[in-house]
Nucleic acid binder design. Structure first.
Lengths: 233, 233, 233, 233
DNA sequence: GATGAATGAGAATTCATTCAT
DNA sequence: CATGAATGAATTCTCATTCAT
């Protein structure tokens, strides 16, 4: 802290002001998340088309103009929504981690590692299967959004969280013996596969093949683990 | 009464009328496809949001109302666009068929079959990689379109053409020894994988993994053929 | 006929041409009434808003432009429709005439006359009660139509037919002893009353008073006959 | 903690806020009625067809979208217009009440009652005769309006006000000795008669009979009072 | 006579956003 | 911080009518 006060010399008042500022900021944060809740509910129920700013404001108990106190634009709201969606995804994936196994037997350890990969991958798959709107959100924002809404900074941030959600699988594959590069490839491919399956499921195209997305996912998962096993040194 | 029948069978006039009708229909068809061209260009350049009826009409050199001479609604335009897109896809896939190989050696025949599967699958992949808007089109129509636009009839029709584009791969897998059920599973999974990869590519998410979609596709293709080989009776 | 032929001197050909012209005109008349049928059905089923020229053309098996071969405008179609409606009204009223009673007893004659008035008035009332669209038609044309549609000539013509439909009642009242002026007043009032009742019925406002239009009509009819009886010299 | 309550009960500020709210609401009300004025003027000058939202907005000095700040839909505007029209009707009818007469003579009292019925009925008649658009409004709304615009609630409300405007006449008839049921019949019939006369007048059909609507109305009124007198116990 | 494409005007409504208050 | 009126542009779609063919 600089010894030269910028403005007032009264330390009591300064403290008071600071405390008030903190309180205010907290209140703001709470209300911001209230808006976000409203946005999520609107989005879940009405989809992208129906989740207008007006609708969001109505659900939040605000008038349209008030939203701009918390978000710069509608796309900004969506951006925050996606961020929060990715947080939930990460929570789900983290929660899926099985207890670490310590064993002398390498077979046991290997089985445990495979189990962990399965758990994490399934958690990822299930998250989007169970709430397809989160998938929509991701597509909309990563795809159709104006540069105004998806700034490079935000983009990087969101990417990082998405990556985080896949990191456990990647680590598991490495632990199973895959090289870093191979593991990265496999994770990218897994991600693509999941997204593809869910999209086909979501749009009803999967029925065309008389297939269940979950069954196909399990197939893919097993083939992935088989590849990993085959590459074991 | 005149000995000439009231409805004259004057062959010259009949032929003339028929010819005129044919000509007219041809002109109509041309103009309709002109509107479709305008719609495609609008869609390619501006995406879903920008491809409004106004915009399409402007590009086609029409007033908005005129579009309704050719299409019943905006969704109808999109439907036609998707239909035409699927036709192009099928053309590409068909054109990818290699010359049939006749050989005594089962190894040679097997290699040829594998080559055919590769060609067809790549044609499919390349089609959407090279024109991502066709992918968008499919998603939009299969996903967000009103029932008014995507009638069950049209839906079935479009589904059938999509299926057609994947049929050669399926046939190839069966020829390679896969059972019908397995082949269907693999084709569905292949489709999902392609869609997933292209979407990740299209939204820039693939960069997150420092991967090239084409390379990942090739990897997947090889693993698919390997699985087929392993199942050989 | 002027002895100087306008154009050809060949009488045979002239006769032939005239016959053809007559035939053609008849065909035209038939087709015109076909369009009118289509218009009526559209109007009955869809009301004023729904009975667009397109709809009428569709029902007549024509394209919109073709209608203009038979009618100058949409309002013209409506005008013809109203004319035809008034013809049907007159038919109904005429058909309601009871057999003339010849009797020495003035009481018997009087009762017969009253019965005739009742029949004619009821026929009028029933006509519009049973097909409220004809009432709509009248209102629309007499009310909202452009001068372009309702020319003074047509107006006079339609008025005359409307008047015709009420003439029997007027004649009956005169026969019952009312002066010409009184009879005209009563007929105008009767017409107004009927129209008012039907409108209230048609718009559901009559329920407001828990009344049935038919019962109110009978009441009015009796009071009218009572007035006529009271004025008997 | 500050001893001052977080939510201050500062009466001055509260009063201030309340006053501001009241002022705002008043301003809103004024502007809303401005839109309504514009709507009425458009309706009066251009009729139903011409009174589009665009036109109303233009006359109110607004953009079309702005109207939706005050009314949910075009039909809503019309609904408000009719409501306000019925208010004016009631005012007119109320204002027509003659001073109550207190007299020993039953003849004097009876004459006074008859005078009151005449006044109220004439006020009703005159209101719609002098502003036929109010009649149109009623017809349009009671007749062609979408259920979206004319909710059952609104319908009941409007009906009630219409009924109110006729209540004085009904009360007068009862006072003159008619039973409740008879009085209700007569009022319904009176309403129908007025509506019918005005419609005939408005559409120019009354000229057909060379009659004046006002004279016919007076005739009907007298016959009504005569009927009431005849039923006197 | 009939077609059907095309016009041009206009319909109601929705939307994100702004801004004085 | 919040309001809510207002904008301005956009949306899809409908219509009566015209006219070259």
């Amino acid at each position: 802290m600089s010894p030269v006060a910028a403005e007032p010399a009264d330390p009591a008042r300064a403290t008071h002001a600071a405390a008030r500022s903190v309180r205010k900021q907290a209140v703001t944060e709470v209300r911001r998340s209230l808006v976000l809740d409203a946005a999520r509910s609107a989005f879940v129920e009405l989809g992208l088309e129906g989740a207008s700013l007006r609708e969001i404001a109505k659900r939040a108990g605000y008038t349209p103009g008030a939203i701009y106190s918390y978000f710069a634009s509608k796309e900004d709201v969506y951006g925050a929504l996606l961020g929060e969606s990715l947080e939930r995804l990460n929570e789900r994936v983290s929660a899926a981690a099985p207890a670490p196994v310590v064993s002398r037997s390498s077979t046991v350890r290997r089985r445990a590692l495979q189990g962990a990969v399965r758990s994490h991958a399934r958690a990822f798959f299930d998250f989007y299967r169970d709430s397809p709107r989160d998938l929509d959100l991701g597509f909309y924002l990563f795809h159709g959004m104006q540069p105004r809404g998806l700034t490079p900074t935000l983009n990087k941030q969101l990417n990082a969280r998405l990556h985080d959600a896949l990191a456990p699988v990647q680590a598991g594959l490495v632990a199973l013996g895959l090289g870093e590069t191979d593991a990265r490839c496999e994770v990218a491919a897994l991600f693509a596969h999941i997204v593809g399956l869910l999209l086909l499921s979501h749009t009803g195209r999967i029925r065309m093949f008389h297939q269940e997305p979950a069954a196909l996912f399990e197939r893919y998962l097993e083939s992935l683990l088989a590849r990993a096993a085959a590459k074991r040194p």
